[in-house]
Deep mutational scan, measured.
Amino acid sequence: MQRGKVKWFNNEKGYGFIEVEGGSDVFVHFTAIQGEGFKTLEEGQEVSFEIVQGNRGPQAANVVKL
C-alpha cells in the first residue's frame, strides 16, 4: 500500500489527485474510495491506496482515509 495526501478532489465530477512524496500525482475516482455513504476526499487528507493501471495510466484503488 502507498500513502499520500489528497492534492484536490472535485465532488461534482467525482475525481481528483493524490500527491505521493517523491513520485507523480495519482488520479483517484470516487468509486475507488472505501467506505459507506457519500464518497469524497478533502484536500490535504492522508490516505493509503494501491496503484493500478487504468485506461489512461496509473490510478488509485482501494483508497482508505487515514
Rank of each mutant, 00 (worst) to 15 (best):
V26G: 01
E43C: 15
F30W: 10
S48Q: 12
K13C: 07
S24I: 09
W8C: 08
E43H: 15
G44L: 06
Q45F: 06
K13F: 05
R56F: 04
E46V: 10
V52D: 06
N11T: 10
E36M: 06
N11L: 12
G4P: 01
I18C: 04
Q59L: 14
L41W: 02
G35A: 12
E12N: 15
N11P: 14
T31W: 02
N55D: 02
K5C: 12
E36W: 11
K39I: 04
V6I: 11
L66P: 10
A60N: 00
N10P: 01
F49T: 03
A60T: 01
F17T: 05
G57F: 03
E19G: 15
E42G: 13
K65F: 06
A60W: 00
S24D: 13
G14I: 00
I33D: 02
I18F: 02
Q59Y: 11
Q34I: 04
R3K: 08
I33V: 10
Q53Y: 08
T40W: 06
R56Q: 08
E46P: 10
P58G: 06
E42W: 08
Q2N: 10
F30A: 09
G37H: 09
T31E: 06
F9E: 01
A32V: 05
N11A: 08
E46G: 11
G44Q: 09
L66M: 11
T31F: 02
E19T: 10
Q59P: 01
R56L: 07
N10W: 05
P58R: 10
V28G: 01
V52M: 15
N55W: 13
M1L: 08
V6D: 00
V6A: 06
G57Y: 05
F30Q: 10
L41S: 02
F17K: 04
A61S: 13
Q34N: 15
S48N: 05
Y15G: 02
T31L: 04
Q45Y: 07
V6H: 00
S48C: 08
F17R: 04
E12S: 14
G16T: 00
T31S: 12
A61R: 14
V63N: 01
E50F: 10
E36G: 12
E50I: 08
G54L: 05
F38I: 09
Q2I: 15
Q34M: 13
L66S: 11
G35K: 05
E42V: 12
G4S: 05
V64W: 09
G23I: 09
K39D: 04
H29I: 01
E46A: 11
G4C: 00
S48R: 13
E19S: 14
T40H: 07
G57L: 04
V26C: 08
V64Q: 15
L41T: 02
G14F: 02
G4K: 01
